[in-house]
């Protein structure tokens, strides 16, 4: 295809992506370097019968005018990045100097909002992803053993947790684990503890969110693995059996290697999707014990005073995280691509 034709075909799509994905990234970087104008102060002299007094007060009119004229605010350099709500370099240094043990240091770091969110996001990403792979493979193997007639129905119900809106899925589960809901009430009965609540303790909240994550994403891994299982070469399986491989050995040494490219694909998609975990925290109202990077951006952006600079700084740090996450994949693809060309 000549360059000219290619250009005209790709133009509309490329324009949309540049305007609404590439430029917003630039906009986020610029915003993160700025901070809202401080309030304008004025000195007023009030003179009474007993002489004059000078008084400093906020000039609301001028503040509003200034903020309207320059909505971006004033240049702040990397100030927002190092403040307490983000990388908190000073707090880290004091915590390091004052803590004797790793545990004490970790405890203090976990009180800083950015690190708390980062810890949850990473824990979620790196726990949920492997669990999704394992559960998805197990379901695929199970369904593959079912009679043909039952498979369609099984797939239909299996798709539900994945297709349903994440916020709605998490709400449905949230109502069930409510102390008055079916799971919450049953748990209280089982453990004979009327105060047991999955929402109160941070550990249980984290656990609930992980369970939700696996529940939501397992169908995706299942479907992909199930499709892969249909293409496992029959001869290799038979050859393995003639050589005396047990059922488990056949799965381990024939089926799983055959599915390896799919494992890479699912891992890539899951890492991308789990790193932006956000809706379940809103749905489970878990923000007190678990926040993610996406969630703290969201809470900066809403409310009466929107903190654009702060949200933008977190966004830039999140984008850096995504870049780090994707680098191995991109390097690998680049190598494969070059090998193919040679």
């Amino acid at each position: 295809m000549p360059h000219r034709t290619f250009f005209w075909f790709i133009l509309p799509s490329l324009t949309a992506m540049i305007l609404f994905i590439a430029l917003p990234i630039v906009s986020v970087v610029i915003q993160s370097l700025h901070v809202e104008h401080e309030q304008v102060l004025e000195v007023v002299e009030t003179c009474g019968p007993f002489g004059c007094t000078e008084e400093t007060r906020v000039d609301t009119e001028a503040t509003r005018a200034l903020r309207e004229a320059e909505p971006l605010g004033r240049f702040n350099g990397l100030g927002t990045y190092v403040n307490r709500a983000h990388l908190a370099t000073e707090e880290l240094a004091t915590a390091w100097a004052e803590s004797d043990t790793w545990g004490a240091f970790g405890g203090r770091v976990m009180n800083l909002p950015f690190y708390k969110a980062l810890a949850f996001t990473l824990a979620y990403t790196f726990l949920v992803t492997p669990l999704v792979l394992v559960l998805g493979l197990a379901i695929a193997l199970g369904v593959n053993g079912l009679p043909q007639r039952l498979r369609g129905v099984t797939i239909f119900f299996s798709l539900l947790p994945m297709i349903v809106t994440p916020l709605i899925g998490s709400l449905v589960l949230f109502w069930m684990i409510d102390a008055d809901g079916i799971i919450g009430a049953t748990l209280q009965l089982l453990f004979d503890d009327p105060d047991l609540s999955l929402k109160a303790s941070p550990t249980l909240t984290w656990l609930t969110l992980f369970v939700y994550g696996v529940w939501h994403s397992a169908p995706f891994a299942f479907i992909v693995f199930y499709a892969g299982l249909q293409t496992v070469p029959e001869e290799t399986l038979e050859a393995a059996m003639i050589d005396g491989a047990s059922r488990w050995e056949r799965v381990r040494y024939v089926v799983i290697p055959h599915l390896m490219p799919l494992v890479v694909f699912i891992t890539l998609i899951q890492l991308m999707d789990n790193f932006r975990v956000f809706e379940p925290i809103v749905g489970f109202q878990a923000q007190a014990s678990a926040t993610s990077l996406s969630y703290i951006i969201y809470s900066d952006l809403r409310g009466d005073t929107q903190q654009f600079g702060s949200a933008a700084a977190t966004s830039v740090l999140t984008i850096l995280g995504v870049a780090i996450l994707l680098t191995p994949v991109l390097i690998r693809t680049w190598r494969d691509f070059n090998r193919k060309r040679v």
């Binding site: 290619f6 790709i10 490329l14 992506m17 609404f20 994905i21 590439a22 430029l23 917003p24 990234i25 630039v26 906009s27 986020v28 915003q31 909505p71 971006l72 991308m272 790193f275 932006r276 956000f278 990077l293 996406s294 951006i297 969201y298 900066d300 952006l301 929107q306 654009f308 949200a311 933008a312 977190t314 966004s315 999140t318 984008i319 995504v322 870049a323 996450l325 994707l326 991109l330 693809t333 680049w334 691509f337």
Partner: peptide, 26 residues
């Protein structure tokens, strides 16, 4: 064409809320 697809992959990984924080002010 290959590079455009790779860039699209990177764009797909962007958390939506980071893009939203870029849109709001403009």
């Amino acid at each position: 064409a290959f590079w455009l697809l790779m860039i699209a992959l990177v764009f797909r990984a962007m958390p939506h809320i980071t893009l939203v924080s870029g849109y709001l002010l403009p």
